[in-house]
Nucleic acid binder design. Structure first.
Ligand code: FES
Ligand code: FES
Lengths: 134, 134
DNA sequence: TCCTAAATCTGATTAATATCATATTTTAGG
DNA sequence: CCTAAAATATGATATTAATCAGATTTAGGA
């Protein structure tokens, strides 16, 4: 998340970002960040180009991706969608004891991740509605 | 959570529960469950007595504990309360880019964990509002 | 064309968490 | 007071996730 938001905040037409120039600014170990960015790139969440002048960046299309995409790629679809008590699939028609407390909040949360794009978050930052000291 | 809810559902005045009679019913490895129940007991979330006829159970007081107590004991207070971007402490006056999306949902969630007791959940189950096939 | 700078790929290492094993303490009941 | 049944304590192992290291591929520029 931090890495993607960093790219979103600092990508522009003539600048791409190398792992070694990002990692310390977002406080994530270099090798770990590399592996994560490569995965995000392979799964088309972010963009990259190799060779000199290369690096990671966000394309127009990337900006419009919903945040849920990042979560799904990194943590897998199960992570947010399974029953909190792991006694079954999360099912609001047949809610477990924690569902109304957690599951509903969770579904609401997922919905928001689906509706909010990277661009939305960055807009908020640029309008001063939120901060992102990266 | 499952273990505590199991105890809540099945504790009565003349019955305590041993690890070996619980673990398979909630699908948690025996030794792992033992360590967790011991920790919960030491931290006064659940009750126990040793020796023959002993086992784990919930006291009246235990029933009235808010769910947040379980989370705090098992996962630590930080787990739910730190900024999602881990760039600072979570602070709604100076929200990070994800705070409104996640942090607010999260605070709401914490509040509910603080307000809901084990007894509340069990009441729901007994009234048929939710299920708990344990 | 060749050199170099970048991501990519692959596997190894380390750290954290979950799980196991066993010895110790406590307590009910004979 | 003995014995057996239970939790408790402690340390070891196994599994998973995070981090590291190095060889390989790609692309820009001289
Ligand atoms: S049914 Fe358990 S969280 Fe939804
Ligand atoms: S400030 Fe980041 S989640 Fe609240």
């Amino acid at each position: 998340m931090k890495a993607v938001l960093f790219l979103a905040l600092h990508t522009n037409d003539n600048q791409k970002w190398m792992v070694k120039d990002i990692y310390s600014r977002i406080n994530v170990p270099q090798s770990y960040l590399a592996k994560i960015l490569q995965e995000l790139s392979k799964r088309d969440v972010i963009s990259s180009s190799r060779g000199p002048k290369g690096g990671f960046y966000l394309s127009e299309a990337n900006f419009d991706l919903p945040l849920i995409k990042i979560v799904d790629v990194i943590d897998g679809k199960q992570r947010l969608r399974s029953c909190m008590l792991s006694i079954k699939e999360c099912d609001s028609d047949n809610p477990c004891a924690l569902h109304d407390l957690v599951g509903n909040t969770n579904s609401e949360f997922i919905k928001r991740l689906e509706q909010t794009t990277i661009l939305d978050l960055i807009s908020d930052v640029k309008e001063g509605k939120s901060v992102l000291p990266l």
